[in-house]
Amino acid sequence: MASQGTKRSYEQMETDGERQNATEIRASVGKMIDGIGRFYIQMCTELKLSDYEGRLIQNSLTIERMVLSAFDERRNKYLEEHPSAGKDPKKTGGPIYKRVDRKWMRELVLYDKEEIRRIWRQANNGDDATAGLTHMMIWHSNLNDTTYQRTRALVRTGMDPRMCSLMQGSTLPRRSGAAGAAVKGVGTMVMELIRMIKRGINDRNFWRGENGRKTRSAYERMCNILKGKFQTAAQRAMMDQVRESRNPGNAEIEDLIFLARSALILRGSVAHKSCLPACVYGPAVASGYDFEKEGYSLVGIDPFKLLQNSQVYSLIRPNENPAHKSQLVWMACNSAAFEDLRVLSFIRGTKVSPRGKLSTRGVQIASNENMDAMESSTLELRSRYWAIRTRSGGNTNQQRASAGQISVQPAFSVQRNLPFDKPTIMAAFTGNTEGRTSDMRAEIIRMMEGAKPEEMSFQGRGVFELSDERAANPIVPSFDMSNEGSYFFGDNAEEYDN
């Protein structure tokens, strides 16, 4: 993207840094990872977990959730003011799984939030270390993106479920800051804005008074975040219109849905970061690795190297396929839920299948599930090659597409044709070009129609051997075009429920 120079890199967003050079960025990201790792080690000690239990991804998720809940100030305040039966607002906890007599047992633990905050700050040299908290939120978000298709949420806001490739980060909490905003897809931002506008339509006082002023500035800020994701002048001009509207209503909703559809071809720039579970960072720190000293990046080879040398386990339900569970977590670790499966298959070195073909449910185990038949197995999170994460949407291309997802959002900077089903997408653009945004709409449609099938995206960008740390010898991959490109292809993934 041309304006790259004016933006802070995501590592800076990730670490609240002012302008830093590459070495400083690597050190501050490393410091953040160190903090998460030290916190995780301490929690495993508190909970008396064995090494194996500490490497269980379900335990990692519970521990991450506990610290996120302990620092969720708004919710904590709300819980104190609106006490609900049987919930102690000062405590947080969740299921911890232990191996007892050759069987997995679930144990519900409860801790004072104050105590968890103390352990977290102690692991982070006394700081609140917001960057580390956001990092864990993005890992949870990436896992949700890989596990669930947001059909219901899309339909509720009037969008087409086939636009799911635009929904990265749709389950990120509001408090995820600049680093969170960077990884949100165009569809996620559109959905947040539509929800806001709908509230304004239904509630006369939404934009009024002292609160209304705050609401208005939040609305304009979200519009600017979305505008910054678009790469064409016409899309940005249309966002200006939406932002400046005196009284946002149905016309703005129409414009936003139009823009979301246009992003299936004229893709937005959305950041991709490899955020790993805390149970990967903990053992690495415990083994003596100093992330701050060595430096770390979320968008280069580092996460690949770390996963190459990590042992992570997962509980497996009786009829689940461990290899499929591994694929789910591998995609989440690489922030690749909406990437082209052919690119992923090449990088991973084994075939990556669409969601609907995987015999696996989510990673988390519900409290009512029976533990008797639970097994555990090693997650295979290694890769054959590594590639640089991208934040450009890439230019655009036609490809055989599917009944489910009709476009992709690249996660890796790797040369390819970008699949999208042009006739299906263009069919949504018939007729409606009147109104105050008509010239911009016409211009956007013209650009979409001009998108050429034979153009290559990320020209000359390749993948790298894991021994090639400096990215000196790019390998331009070859793809098996007979395979499906979309992950949520004609899909039956479970729906995400809060």
Rank of each mutant, 00 (worst) to 15 (best):
164 C>G: 02
460 G>M: 12
246 R>C: 12
204 R>T: 06
90 K>G: 07
223 C>K: 09
19 R>I: 02
307 L>F: 12
261 R>I: 07
178 A>F: 00
343 V>C: 12
170 S>H: 09
479 F>M: 01
213 R>N: 13
192 E>D: 10
18 E>D: 14
324 H>F: 04
123 A>D: 03
343 V>T: 11
177 G>D: 04
118 R>Q: 12
405 Q>Y: 01
188 T>M: 03
174 R>M: 10
127 D>C: 04
4 Q>M: 07
426 M>I: 15
417 N>Q: 12
338 F>G: 12
358 L>K: 04
7 K>R: 00
164 C>P: 07
488 F>T: 01
224 N>Q: 14
54 G>W: 05
13 M>V: 05
261 R>W: 10
291 F>I: 09
182 A>W: 10
87 K>W: 01
205 N>L: 04
252 E>H: 07
406 I>P: 05
78 Y>E: 11
332 A>H: 09
429 F>G: 02
421 D>K: 00
382 R>G: 11
186 V>R: 03
229 K>F: 13
217 S>R: 02
385 Y>F: 13
240 D>N: 14
462 G>R: 15
13 M>D: 15
134 T>V: 14
192 E>V: 04
345 S>I: 11
356 G>E: 11
324 H>A: 08
166 L>M: 15
212 G>H: 10
442 A>C: 09
446 R>G: 10
175 R>S: 10
436 R>V: 04
84 S>R: 00
423 P>H: 13
384 R>H: 13
209 G>W: 06
184 K>V: 08
171 T>P: 02
467 S>D: 06
26 R>K: 15
322 P>L: 07
382 R>E: 09
397 N>D: 00
126 G>C: 14
475 I>K: 01
300 G>A: 09
25 I>Q: 15
11 E>Q: 09
451 A>L: 15
225 I>P: 04
70 A>L: 01
471 A>I: 03
492 N>W: 03
260 A>L: 03
450 G>C: 15
308 Q>V: 11
431 G>I: 14
215 T>P: 04
209 G>Y: 14
337 A>Q: 10
216 R>Q: 04
48 K>E: 02
470 R>V: 00
206 F>P: 05
60 S>N: 14
222 M>L: 01
359 S>I: 13
247 N>R: 02
445 I>Y: 11
289 Y>L: 14
86 G>P: 13
175 R>F: 06
98 K>E: 03
253 I>E: 11
146 T>P: 01
247 N>F: 06
41 I>A: 09
128 D>R: 06
334 N>R: 00
